[in-house]
């Protein structure tokens, strides 16, 4: 098994930690309250790194695995932060049938990360998403607010070089 630790070092602030403990203390005595705690933590940090999940596990008195199981079950939770440039690959029906899979594959190869991942320098994060309403340009990706359409996969290197 390969340890899936986040590629970007954890940089939580004291303020975030105070907020996390506030959420935990609010729910500590309620059994089965892991969900709201994880939601609160995701809101505070934007993602759920091992450092945050470990605190939650210890404070809530459950094994870390229990926390991780929930964090990976629900798509609302993320194990990685968003990069400086957030790349979203549309996997909606139109994009999908016009080859979004190939585009995503090329992005993965270029960046060396899986969907949901972030490059170690924190520059790019990659995720797949559903329809962004630009079906006429399918297949389409977004990098922050920039939209790139009618892609084949071959352009990916040039596009990434712009950032």
């Amino acid at each position: 098994m390969a340890f899936k630790k986040c590629a970007v070092p954890f940089a939580g602030t004291a303020e975030q930690e105070r907020a996390l403990f506030a959420v935990i203390n609010e729910h500590k005595s309620i059994s089965g309250a892991l969900m709201p705690v994880l939601q609160g933590a995701q809101e505070i940090y934007g993602y759920l790194p091992i450092e945050v999940q470990t605190v939650i596990a210890e404070e809530m008195g459950v094994p870390l695995e229990k926390v991780y199981g929930i964090a990976t079950f629900y798509s609302q939770f993320s194990l990685n932060p968003k990069g400086k440039y957030k790349i979203s690959v549309c996997m909606g029906t139109a994009c999908y049938v016009r080859g979004a899979g190939e585009v995503l594959k090329k992005l993965q190869e270029n960046l060396g990360i899986e969907p949901g991942g972030i490059t170690p320098d924190g520059k790019f994060s990659l995720e797949d998403c559903r329809c962004i309403g630009a079906c006429g340009l399918a297949p389409v990706i977004m990098i922050n607010d920039d939209v790139y359409g009618r892609l084949t996969g071959k352009e990916i290197g040039d596009i990434l070089a712009k950032y």
Binding site: M1, F3, K4, P63, L64, E65, K66, Y68, T72
Partner: peptide, 23 residues
């Protein structure tokens, strides 16, 4: 002890340790 569990969901579900760390 609870160091193993079902992680991810659906077809991707696998019994592993937290963060897929080695046992």
């Amino acid at each position: 002890v609870g160091v193993i569990g079902a992680n991810e969901r659906g077809f991707r579900t696998e019994i592993t340790c937290a963060f897929d760390m080695p046992l």
